[in-house]
């Protein structure tokens, strides 16, 4: 049961949230201009990273706000949460090196 710090409500149990998968995937401005391959990249392809992962979360049983989180998919450590539209924080690992990341 993760403890997730909603940027609007504060720390709450995971059971109040829904994970929305990889963050920072903007919808293409002009989908019609894309090839099938490019559209498929947007629609289906996800990085599925091991380690630092920027992802969307929804406080679905709370304030119902979407926000982003920088979570380690191995340790489940949540390095930061931040509001939609904010710049993703740079996260360094224990050794000071940024591992992976999809920001």
């Amino acid at each position: 049961m993760l403890l997730i710090n909603c940027p609007w409500c504060g720390p709450r149990d995971e059971i109040e949230f829904t994970c929305g998968g990889e963050a920072h995937i903007a919808r293409p401005a002009d989908p019609a201009a894309l090839s099938d391959q490019e559209w498929a990249e947007y629609l289906f392809m996800r990085k599925n990273l091991k380690g630092l992962h920027y992802e969307r979360w929804h406080h679905s049983y709370g304030c119902r706000q979407w926000f982003n989180a920088a979570r380690d998919t191995v340790t489940h450590e949540i390095h930061a949460t931040y509001k939609m539209g904010e710049t993703p924080p740079v996260v360094a690992g224990e050794d000071g090196v940024v591992k992976g990341g999809n920001s």
Binding site: G20, A26, R27, R56, H58, S60, R64, Q65, W66, M84, G85
Partner: peptide
């Protein structure tokens, strides 16, 4: 509702 709200919060802000 969740579908529309998601777009309004994250894309059509």
């Amino acid at each position: 509702f969740g579908w529309i709200d998601d777009w309004l919060q994250c894309e059509w802000t």
